[in-house]
Design a protein around this nucleic acid. Structure first.
Lengths: 343, 343
DNA sequence: ATCTCTTCTGAATGCGCATTCAAGGAGGTG
DNA sequence: CACCTCCTTGAATGCGCATTCAGAAGAGAT
């Protein structure tokens, strides 16, 4: 078969110029006379020439490829974010090498090594942690990395999250204002900053109002665990009249358990508040009051941050928190005077 | 900064051998004496050497990378499939270059061109069509391509789908057996083979039972359109007592519209059947009877097919249909004698 | 008309690795 | 001991492009 790949030299020969000239025409800093440029472009079009991206990468050292590691794809927040990230990066001419991480934060390191072997210009890790030794290497090799929706203490790591502490605190104020006095929390994984911060903010908010949690269970962002936690909370002597759940994904399971298994009404018998504001939260079946994680702005910020690192503008790591409003719907009693911000 | 990338030559120098020897140690057909192999591995470990994948690709012509184009990420079937595909390909040492397609099947071609420029070894396109001109090119350049969950007439194209016609037909038999006599269909996009085949199978099944659709609306796999279609069906003189919806994603919207806006009960007033069996179908809120699309087997088959094309084993295109059983739950009246296959 | 400065262009080289090829060494046979 | 075969190894080369460098050509200036 004609497996003949058309190279810059082929084009050069046909256009009667040298290979470097062809290279210059297709490169960016083109200093080629209009005359030759036209000849080259014509020849290239006739031959159907397209530059070999890999060869270019090898020569320049820049691949225009970003490595992306993502987990928890069953939580619809991530497909949404993934889609936005992908579009945003493609928009500015970057490709995405994607890896799925097992949700249990083990063994990300070899995946990152793999990414490095592929000469990615930068790395985005969504909702997954990263080891210190690996951080050392990345910093040493000067590979830009941004953690998406996950913070980590190491000051050398950049991250973009929503304002989780503040979000949790707002929920506390909201529930207290709604007159709830038996408030429980089904938290996200306490091994993650998001899970911890939301919980800490929530507890802080309650404390400011002189309240304490009557129950708190780590359900590690997993539906079955959240359902189990719900049963457990309602089998205690004092049952909750409001539950803040660590993310929407779990909150749906909590709501279903409350309605189906416990036969209780939402929000009459118990209020439920989630976190993320995934599109499903707006479905009539759930109509979930939840803290919005502004995926668009988080993505925007992530890409901006990564690009500034790649371009060497910004060498110090930064941790950015994006504020997200409470999206008030019908799954929790609405206190007097509360309504959705803006919109 | 020490931007020094460690190359095979560095390792060679330190190990006191030549660069090709290092290359042979890290390659597969290694014909190197144990003696030298050990020295090389030691030197490599000390230096922290890792082969540059791109350079290897340039030299061998094989990138071990698959291009993946996927759309409709809001339909949870696709994140699920994406995750499985990713894991399956990683498993056998392949990387994934991912692109999100706008759901409106426009302009996939430039994306594929882009993929080609990146020297991918093969391409998987999920639920998106491809132009004839592009097919010509792929065939000419001998780039393996498999359509996932989407068929196309061109005999040169390989595809993996579920048995959509058969699935639609089974649903028809099920609903007829359930005693329904006013059956409607909210179809998937008729511009797609999946949408068409499910509808055709459904209509054929009804016909065999001497019935006809009392209504049929193309809602193009979109929730809002499905909700609108539901309203339309129920504003007619003769309202349906059963609706087959083109996929689960739309079916959920249909169910919510029926319950919330129309105040009808499922399945007492109207039966609803979907297609895909996404994990959400099993949630108590929906408990949706639906045709299973066996994502695992479809992925397995897709990968196997692609690999056989890449390895040149199988040069003729093949179209594979995977049978999926009807998953009977509570959203549709269950006829006497029907129960779930297997499990 | 001569000299200098500026563009444009091609020859040469390198990115990091795989692969061909020929040389060398080990082992075997008569 | 000569001869041949087989295996291991290094020198050389190429994958396709970008980039440095130096020469060629053109534009101004005196």
């Amino acid at each position: 078969m004609a497996k003949e790949r058309i190279t810059a030299s082929d084009v050069a020969r046909r256009a009667g110029v040298s290979q470097p000239t062809v290279s210059r025409v297709f490169g960016v800093g083109a200093k080629v006379s209009e005359n030759l440029k036209l000849k080259v472009k014509t020849a290239a079009a006739e031959l159907g020439y397209r530059p070999n991206t890999l060869a270019r990468t090898l020569a320049t050292g820049r691949s225009r490829t970003i490595g992306l590691i993502v987990a928890y794809l069953d939580n619809p927040f991530y497909p949404e974010a993934l889609e936005k990230l992908s579009l945003a990066l493609n928009e500015i001419g970057y490709h995405i090498l994607i890896f799925m991480a097992a949700n249990q934060a083990e063994e990300i390191d070899p995946v990152v090594e793999d990414l490095l072997d592929n000469q990615v210009d930068g790395i985005i890790i969504a909702s997954v942690g990263i080891s210190n030794t690996l951080t050392d290497r990345l910093v040493k090799e000067n590979i830009p990395l941004v953690l998406f929706n996950r913070g980590q203490d190491d000051p050398r790591l950049s991250s973009v999250t929503s304002a989780n502490f503040e979000g949790g605190r707002t929920v506390a104020q909201f529930l207290v204002a709604g007159g709830h006095r038996r408030i429980a929390h089904i938290s996200g994984w306490q091994g993650s900053s998001t899970g911890r911060d939301r919980q800490a903010g929530f507890i802080a908010g309650l404390k400011e109002a002189g309240q304490e949690l009557i129950g708190c269970i780590d359900s590690r962002f997993r539906r079955p665990l959240a359902a189990a936690a719900t049963r457990q909370l309602f089998s205690a002597e004092i049952v909750p009249d409001a539950i803040f759940v660590g993310n929407d994904h779990m909150a749906f399971a909590v709501m279903e358990t409350i309605r189906t298994e416990l036969g209780l009404r939402i929000p009459e018998d118990v209020s439920v508040v989630g976190y993320d504001d995934v599109s499903m939260a707006d479905w009539p079946s759930f109509n979930l009051t939840t803290v919005r994680q502004p995926a668009n702005r988080m993505v925007e910020e992530t890409v901006k941050m990564l690009m500034s690192m790649i371009n060497g503008d910004h060498l110090t790591a930064q941790k950015r928190e994006i504020h997200g409003p409470l999206q008030i719907r019908g799954s929790a009693r609405i206190p007097e005077g509360w309504s959705n911000e803006g919109v």
